[in-house]
Amino acid sequence: MSESTFLFQYVLHLADDVLILGHRNSEWTGHGPILEQDIAISNIALDLIGQARNFYQYAAQLSNEEGISATEDSLAYLRDGWDFRNCLLAEQTNGDWAKTILRQFFFSAHQVDLYAWLAKGNDTTLAAIGAKAYKEAIYHLRWSSEWVIRLGDGTEESHARMVRALDELWKFTGELHTPVPYELWATGAGIGPDLSLLRLKWEERIKNIFDEAGLTYPSTQWMQTGGKEGRHTEQLGYVLAEMQFLQRAYPGCEW
């Protein structure tokens, strides 16, 4: 595969992760458990969709340079599931507040180090996006960490719900740090981080917060993967069916 194809796929992967996660979070808007937290989760959704737009715009530029016309919207709205490269974790349903919080926490704990790395990487566009997104991810991590602790160490019910959320989501966390070919290429080119190093940092972050939250760090090793190469869970199809409805029903329109 050519360098430009690897780069394109890598950028799309970064974009798809935050679009799908942001979309999921935005399903909470208007339905949050506390008004202040409705605002907070919507704000995080907004940050993530903003990051997605930056990544997609870059991916579209790369595509156009290769003579294949694309826009941020054609990339988001006109690809089917097998072309989406987001991690499986991003597309998992919201479930209750515990599951949404834990999903965000797992992601943010990964994104802070990923974005910090991109910010000093060799690709100037990704470095600029990474630097901006890093600041947002730091806030998302702090917010979600506080909630993991609050729910883990809150009431018997909230603790039980966190344990259940952990049971549902843990198997999707390994994919965050299991590199696929375009990530290996990015690491080699000094554009993206070495995921095995990021994994160590991530585990430490999770363990520290779990300690405070009274949650047990799982020993299960078996992990689901495939999302980053377009093999998804059943959840993604529904997200796309809903998200892409207007663009599919009325093709070629300006909105």
Binding site: T29, I39, L46, G50, W255
Partner: peptide
């Protein structure tokens, strides 16, 4: 309509708008 907004820009502005209402 947030989850069905037709473009990324519309999606972002709609979320921001609904969030303003919460504010």
């Amino acid at each position: 309509w947030i989850t069905r907004a037709p473009t990324l820009r519309r999606k972002a502005t709609l979320i921001a708008k609904v969030q303003d209402e919460a504010g």
